[in-house]
Amino acid sequence: MRDGVRELLARRFGPRELRDAVERPGHLDRGLWRELGAAGFFALRLPESEGGVGLGLPEAVLAFEEAGRALLPGPLVATHLAAGRVPGAAEGHAVVTGPLGGLVEWLGEADVVRGDTAGAVPLRSVDPLTPLHRLPAAGAPDLVAVLLTAAEQLGSAGRTCELAVQHARTREQFGRPVGAFQAVQHLCADMLVRTRTARAAVHAAAVTAGPADVHAARLLADEAAVRGARDCLQVHGGMGFTWEFEVHLHLKRAWIRTRRAGPATESEELMAAALLEKED
């Protein structure tokens, strides 16, 4: 499944398509959306009896990691959750969105809106690949949405770590690769530590689906994605600050994803309250 999604995204959403998408804000590639549907991206967890793939959260997490790595645009989580509930969602024929943490992504482009988006106000989105509307109030986050978002963050963290390491290996200053300097090495090492720790948390949460595991995964994955993008930017020096280099897209998307499950403080409060409950 993961290899299939990775292969599809490499073929259909490579560096050129990413650049094109950035230059056409608010436009979603419907052909790619249908191909994602055909590959089972949205119908992944739908039972085979309902025309789905019949897999579970662990496989969905792997697919969303790949989407996060590739910076794949679109209301992926909302459409995935709508599979089997909204006609055409599972097949990638319908683009479905809905409120997530007081925001709605891709409202203008969606065919179907699930949930209450009354009073939605458009924002000038920080991320050129994610049109946003703000809502007057935020509802309680769906646990699966929180987990799949964490999986996207994890994929992004893995990608920014790779980008930083690639650059550190090849970029030379003072007559040697900058990755030979410990100060740069240690930035990269910490990126890997955060990514590996978050990966264990996300993959375990995909198995247990328990609230404490999911919110722990969310906190760790948010941190790995946001700090990973920032450190990747730093390792790239001046190039990291350009529009052309993709790291700013990882950072901006990671910022948006940190809002989907509501403020991080709510997950921290949930984790704190769990300390007073019976041990699981």
């Binding site: 993959h203 375990a204 722990a216 995964a217 403080t265 921290e268 984790m271 704190a272 309250a273």
Partner: peptide, 19 residues
């Protein structure tokens, strides 16, 4: 929240140990 954040972290460290 500091305690909640640590709970998330140690839960993840336990998962990493299992991994």
């Amino acid at each position: 929240r500091a305690l909640g954040g640590l709970h998330a972290e140690f839960r993840a460290l336990w998962r990493l140990t299992q991994w």
